[in-house]
Simulated assay, not measured.
Amino acid sequence: MQLRAGQVAVVTGAASGIGLALARRFAAEGLRVVLADVEEEPLRAAADELIADGAEVLARTVDVGVREEVVALADAAYDTFGAVHLLCNNAGVGSGAEGRMWEHEPNDWKWAFSVNVWGVFHGIQAFVPRMIAAGEPGHVVNTSSTDGGIAPLPTASVYAVTKAAVVTMTESLYAHLKAERARVGASVLFPGPHMLRTGLWESHRNRPGRYAKQRPRRTPYRSLEQWEAAMKEAGQDIAFTPVEQVADLVAEGLAADRFWLLPGSEHSDRQIRARSQSMLDRADPSYLEHFILD
């Protein structure tokens, strides 16, 4: 899909991080942008910034885990701009789960799934039928993660499971769009190749009451800055990928009509090969041993 001035892009989780970087990149290409986020004040600040730079913007406060709110977002986008050409299902959260999987609170899983999985599904159902019916070129980009989307991350299993689900959902969407001979494509995004400075680390601040934790955490939440400081104290240097680089990857991938929006990374390639070989060999997942030893 070629990005052209006048097209309309919808981005969820658009108030910060990857979502805001995507919105800025699309606006710079002359697209009209629809920003959706659960945080009202940062969303308004993001919208004001883009408007000041000359972009046409619609901003809506949306909890993507609530189907009715995503449908209302689609209605507002079409009422305002008359079309949607690009949908980025980007909103995501952590989970706050602690301990082994059997010790997790069900609400940790319910909340993560409501945003990371159901949020993507709600976006597909609310927008894709209208995008297909319009008969114009369009595209859906669903944000996954190398943590789960490529290989399991047992130390953050809830998050990893949701991101694995996003990959399979996007593969299925791709197949369904091809079967319909639709002019709408699909891609799955793996931000990286390194760590990213996003609001994911503080996503617990937006956890809705319906998914509240039912017992106190054993350890306090750590911000990205606190985690980074702890890593440096332990003698480990952490590399970060600028979110603008992720937005560039998406724009380039759209132009090349790529399904896998996966940056080059020796680490990721090793994970892919190790997991694939384990399956082909019908062998135990030895690539997880360093987690088992923890």
Rank of each mutant, 00 (worst) to 15 (best):
E202N: 08
E202K: 07
E202A: 08
S203A: 11
S203D: 13
H204I: 13
R205F: 07
R205I: 07
R205M: 02
R205Y: 04
R205A: 08
N206Q: 11
N206E: 14
N206G: 08
R207F: 15
R207Q: 15
R207G: 13
P208Q: 08
P208I: 12
P208E: 09
P208C: 08
G209L: 10
G209R: 04
G209Q: 08
G209M: 01
R210C: 10
R210G: 11
R210Y: 09
R210H: 09
Y211W: 09
Y211Q: 00
Y211P: 01
Y211A: 03
A212V: 00
A212W: 01
A212E: 07
K213H: 15
K213T: 01
K213P: 10
Q214C: 01
Q214E: 10
Q214I: 01
R215G: 00
P216R: 00
P216M: 02
R217L: 12
R217D: 07
R217I: 04
R217E: 10
R218A: 12
T219F: 13
T219K: 09
P220N: 11
P220H: 09
P220D: 14
Y221F: 13
R222P: 10
R222N: 12
S223N: 07
S223Y: 11
S223K: 08
S223P: 09
Q226P: 09
Q226E: 15
Q226T: 10
W227D: 13
W227H: 12
W227M: 09
A229W: 10
A229V: 04
A230E: 15
A230V: 04
A230Y: 05
A230N: 04
M231Q: 15
M231V: 05
K232P: 03
K232M: 13
K232S: 14
E233F: 00
A234Y: 00
A234W: 02
G235N: 05
G235I: 04
Q236E: 15
D237M: 09
I238D: 09
A239G: 01
A239H: 10
A239C: 07
A239R: 11
A239E: 13
F240P: 02
F240G: 01
F240E: 00
F240D: 01
F240I: 04
F240L: 01
T241H: 03
T241V: 01
T241F: 07
T241R: 00
T241D: 05
T241P: 02
P242N: 01
P242Y: 03
P242H: 02
V243R: 06
V243A: 14
V243I: 03
E244H: 05
E244C: 02
